[in-house]
Design a protein around this nucleic acid. Structure first.
Length: 303
DNA sequence: AACGCGGGGAA
DNA sequence: TTCCCAGCGTT
């Protein structure tokens, strides 16, 4: 049975055997915990920035029990500038759940994985495929783009995942678990290295002769008018990042007036601090005696 | 379904 | 400057 589906997946798998990057969380000595940590770090953060952080993280907290026992402030400092620090909080909550409910081990069951903090459909599928070699539908931004082009004939997938995409991805997953896991890894790698968002290297693509997008003359992105570019300068997100960076650097509670230096606009600063506290990333603390007036609020990372 | 959420490197 | 990155949780 050599239908179009097996042709496509086997061509990508063969390409992967030749061109896969050597990444530390893929090594033969990998652990499910290491894979899970890598996947959480890779949620919206590029590989090149994750790699050193992952090495340091696994050296410091090699098991879920190690991370579960760590002070949260240390966890947030180790997360450093990977972005979206709520992920670090979720990862520690995840470690604690693994200790309390799964004997300190990462489960391979889909429902159990999805129930863990910070683990959604993509990460659950990735852990099952990459850590346990199980059959799973791994559909990340790379795979979505590869399939949108190779099969859909579009430059880029729709802004939000559609039912048609999920169906298409499911239909492509090879029957045997080992093949399915390799297809997942290979299709992601193809999207990361060749079928890239900005400047795809179609001359090096194993699917170029059958790609629907290439056959159509590589038309422009049909969804371009619906993509909104996120503002950055002056946003709450930038403010939160700046405030949290100050708190990461300090070993003692930081009084309000010091935070005002990092982010002057008072209303936005107050709103962002309240949000950080609500998220569990920051706690209000009693200031050190010599740091300022006793009635001035101070903030710190949670212990 | 839409939105909020970091931060940096490349085009 | 803009775009993009192995998404998730909340509303």
């Amino acid at each position: 049975m050599n239908d179009a589906r097996t042709d496509l997946t086997s061509a990508v798998a063969a390409w992967y055997d030749e061109h896969a990057r050597e990444l530390p969380w893929r090594g033969p000595d990998r652990t499910p915990w290491g894979v899970l940590v890598s996947e959480v770090m890779l949620q919206q953060t590029p590989v090149v920035r994750v790699e050193p952080a992952w090495q340091a993280w696994l050296a410091r907290w090699p098991t879920p029990a190690d991370l579960a026992a760590a002070p949260t402030a240390d966890v947030l400092r180790a997360w450093d500038r990977l972005g979206y620090p709520r992920r670090a909080l979720r990862l520690q909550e995840c470690a604690r759940t693994l200790v309390e409910r799964h004997g300190g081990e990462v489960p391979d069951d889909e429902a159990a994985l999805l129930a863990l903090p910070g683990i959604g459909p993509y990460t659950a599928a990735a852990v099952r495929a990459f850590a346990f070699g199980r059959r799973a539908v791994v559909l990340d931004t790379n795979v979505r783009r590869v399939l949108a082009r190779a099969i859909g004939g579009e430059a880029l997938p729709a802004p939000a995942l559609t039912r048609a995409e999920s169906d298409r991805a499911l239909a492509l997953v090879p029957a045997r678990a080992a093949d399915a896991a390799r297809w997942a890894q290979a299709s992601m790698e193809l999207g990361a290295l060749v079928c890239t968002a900005r400047a795809p290297r179609c001359d090096r693509c194993p699917l170029v002769s059958s790609c629907a997008w290439v056959a159509a003359g590589r038309p422009d992105d049909a969804h371009a008018h619906r993509r909104r570019t996120q503002a950055w300068a002056g946003t709450d997100r930038q403010a939160r990042g700046r405030l949290l960076a100050v708190l990461r650097e300090s070993t003692s509670p930081v009084p309000e007036h010091a935070l005002a230096q990092a982010w002057p606009p008072p209303a936005q600063r107050a709103r962002c601090l309240a949000g950080l506290v609500a998220d569990g990333l920051v706690v209000q603390a009693r200031p050190d005696d010599e740091a300022g007036p006793d009635d001035e609020p101070a903030y710190a990372l949670p212990s």
